[in-house]
């Protein structure tokens, strides 16, 4: 177990290349902290993007519903799985073609806000990210309202 002064991930997850300021939203999305230690870096220098936010969480394995949500925070977010203190795998998150039950439609008169049905969004374009509600056909703009939030 690492000491509080020398925290290195042994087995856990690194969420990297979050746009500056987005780490706070990522913590809310993931319900962190849970059991293990969490370190958050905000506005850290990045060779590729100038500055970024980064989160390191011991003992966390992300579910697909969680990576789908994190992908909405920015186009370059990566998730690395750390095992035995080493990076075992790393992936750049992509918003899937269709998001089911991830974000709520912001149109108050959309049927998904009144009936028992999961909101569904189709990705119309990747960059800029453009999502459209499959029911009311309205575009949804950031900030996204997550289901269950």
């Amino acid at each position: 177990m690492p000491s509080p002064h020398d925290f290195r991930l042994q087995d856990g997850t690194v969420i990297d290349h979050l746009p500056v300021g987005m780490s706070a939203r990522a913590l809310v999305i993931l319900g962190l902290p849970r059991d293990g230690p969490v370190t958050v870096g905000m506005n850290v220098p990045s060779a590729r993007f100038g500055h970024k936010d980064i989160i390191r969480v011991e003992g966390l394995a992300l579910r697909k519903s969680e990576t789908d949500r994190l992908a909405l925070l920015g186009g370059n977010v990566t998730v690395a799985i750390v095992k035995g203190g080493k990076i075992a795998s790393k992936q750049r998150l992509e918003v899937p073609d269709r998001l089911v039950g991830v974000i709520r439609c912001q149109n108050p008169t959309c049927v998904t806000n009144h009936e028992r049905v999961s909101p569904v969004f189709d990705r119309v374009s990747k960059a800029p990210l453009h999502l459209r509600c499959a029911y009311c056909e309205r575009s949804s703009a950031d900030p996204y309202v997550f289901v269950g939030a």
Partner: peptide, 10 residues
């Protein structure tokens, strides 16, 4: 015909 958008799709 329904007042809520998306009702026909549902």
């Amino acid at each position: 015909r329904h007042p809520q958008e998306g009702a026909a799709r549902l």
